[in-house]
Design a protein around this nucleic acid. Structure first.
Lengths: 349, 349
DNA sequence: TTGTAGGCGTTATCAA
DNA sequence: TTGATAACGCCTACAA
């Protein structure tokens, strides 16, 4: 039934060769030097005994592992699951296995995972997900990553470049600025913004870019039209409800606001739901735009004006960064978003 | 810069104690026996030297790891990412790290991953995702899992109970049968089905359940109204387009079909898009129902009649199964779906 | 309570 | 080309 584990020694004995030879035959070590005849004998023995190499022992002997650590805020969020998809694909290509942690934005859990990967001697760690402006948390994480990195581990993050490591940054400002310009070009003039949580840097960047884009066109957004809310569907719902209850949006597009920009797609969808719940029509009474171009939401009605991010590519990219030899200076790789205008913001007569 | 790795020996020397004592102090081994005074000295030394235990070495010495393998078909699919979310949460509670593979439904990659986890001596392997009727692939996978299991690894799958291991099954037939009954109760009589791929067992079960539920009410579905298509959004789109082009669905609900059941939500959404693209209205011209109750799609318009699955719970459940001591007989844990009627299938006058 | 020493399964060095 | 044998970093009887 459950005989002891078969080790390489067993295989060697079975094949009538030395341990060293068996090792060489099975993994074709550096100097490919083992007579085919013996090699086959070893392989046959290994197969016969159902030998399975112990990866932990190999890792120890070789001094390197085959693990890649990946931290995301929330794996159930389509934004992250798409990035993870890109990472797993790239990792598989690189012959690595990915160890995943979904930390729910908890700095302590992020830290714990970095420590865990450090102990696992993982080859690299990837951190996905925007930071907040919690300087302590960022510093602590940066320190942990630096410590890990100083022992030869690769590190890369997607988000803001403030962890002192290779980073894939999203051109949030530029993209939202462009979105603002396009919406303006479509005839929108009176904007409100569902700006996400206060300390959320990605949310902030998207908000700033949008506001600045408008400012460049001479349009300003007063504070009463900026609602801070959770970075989630429910946050969008509540934010929009707030706008409605403030009397900013009303039927016939006659309200003080003719378009709402939500700093991500799921918020935008929540906002749409809130609008409907309030008896308002989108885009009839108000236009709505989001950010991310989440695939699952591509069939929403009306189709959502948004900014497309190549999330899977970003995952692949950050993996390459994490795996490539470290530079003295951290590399920053900016990724552009593409504004996509759809039915949720038709031309405003 | 990159000094050699700090080992436990270094810590022991620095603390002026033996290796054994250092080991006991740091991990508080079985018999908690180490004078507080010494313990503190060791801990201080460890901290001073920035000691990080080598998990691989520990795994080898202890003879057990802390890894949990998880295979899904496609991590970018919200169905799976939700399950993964449940698994990662449960794994964290159990003090395990999860190693993820997204296999894109490729049997060879599934196998490769099981083998990989076998070599890693992972504590357990979880396989999420319905099987196909490819007997060879199923047998091969079952064998690999059995082999793994015979070495003491835990195994559990969510899907069909044909791998000979603990399984969380979805009550596909019962749920879809109930859905059929409810739709019938709402006045629908002339159904078409977007049935998914031919060999896909989950798709088949959902189709069968729906058909049987109708049959019990004296309603039959002839083959012309069953379209096989990919288990994806695009599959749903194409399937619906096919139905339309066959002249089965037309404006005013006057066509031969008054409701379409898609075997999952993303297909249903694709079908909605196709209906719209064909100038048809949902639910005006045709009702549509799906399966899964994907959260991200909960705000789709019209809101989708579907069957809710507690996906995160399923993830937690399958994790518990995988981690609990193996039984002689595989356990089968059925999970019910809950029919949720929404706007996409209003009462039919 | 602490220390000594053997072992975990491989790889790698160095002779033969 | 092959084979002893020493690491690899840690845990754990067993002995002191």
């Amino acid at each position: 039934m459950c005989r002891m584990t078969v080790t390489l020694s067993d295989v060697a004995r079975e094949a009538g060769v030395s341990l060293a030879t068996a090792s060489r035959a099975i993994n074709g070590s550096s100097n490919r030097t083992v007579r085919p005849e013996l090699r086959d004998k070893v392989l046959a023995a290994a197969h016969r005994l159902r030998y399975s190499p112990d990866a932990n022992a190999q890792a120890m002997a070789r001094g390197r592992t085959t693990a890649l650590g990946l931290v995301v805020h929330d794996i159930a969020d389509p934004y992250f699951s798409m990035i993870v998809s890109g990472v797993t694909a790239a990792a598989e290509r690189a012959g690595l296995m990915v160890t995943l942690a979904s930390t729910d934005r908890d700095p302590e859990r992020e830290l714990a995972f970095v420590d865990l990967m450090q102990r696992q001697r993982a080859r690299a760690i990837i951190v996905a997900g925007g930071r907040t402006d919690d300087a302590d948390a960022n510093t602590t994480l940066a320190d942990a990553l630096a410590e890990y990195s100083s022992h030869g581990g690769g590190v890369a993050v997607v988000g803001q470049a403030l962890l002192g490591v290779d980073t894939v940054t999203i051109e949030n400002e530029a993209s939202t600025s462009e979105l603002a310009t396009k919406l303006h070009g479509l005839g929108y003039r009176r904007f409100a913004i569902l700006a996400g949580p206060q300390g959320h840097l990605t949310a902030r960047a998207r908000f700033n870019g949008f506001r600045d884009g408008l400012a460049a066109l001479g349009v300003t957004i007063d504070d009463a039209r900026v609602v801070h809310c959770a970075f989630t569907r429910d946050g969008g719902f509540e934010g929009m409800s707030e706008l409605v209850s403030r009397g900013l949006i009303s039927a016939g597009g006659a309200g003080p606001v003719d378009a709402v920009f939500a700093v991500n797609d799921v918020m935008a969808v929540g906002a749409m739901a809130a609008a409907r719940a309030a008896g308002l029509s989108v885009p009839g009474d108000v236009g709505i735009a989001g950010f991310d171009d989440i695939i699952t939401l591509r069939d929403i009605t009306p189709s959502l004006t948004t900014i497309r991010l190549p999330l899977a590519d970003i995952g692949a990219l950050v993996t390459e960064l994490a795996l490539s030899p470290a530079r003295a200076e951290p590399r920053i790789v900016p990724v552009d978003g593409e504004v996509i205008v759809r039915d949720s913001t038709p031309r405003r007569g």
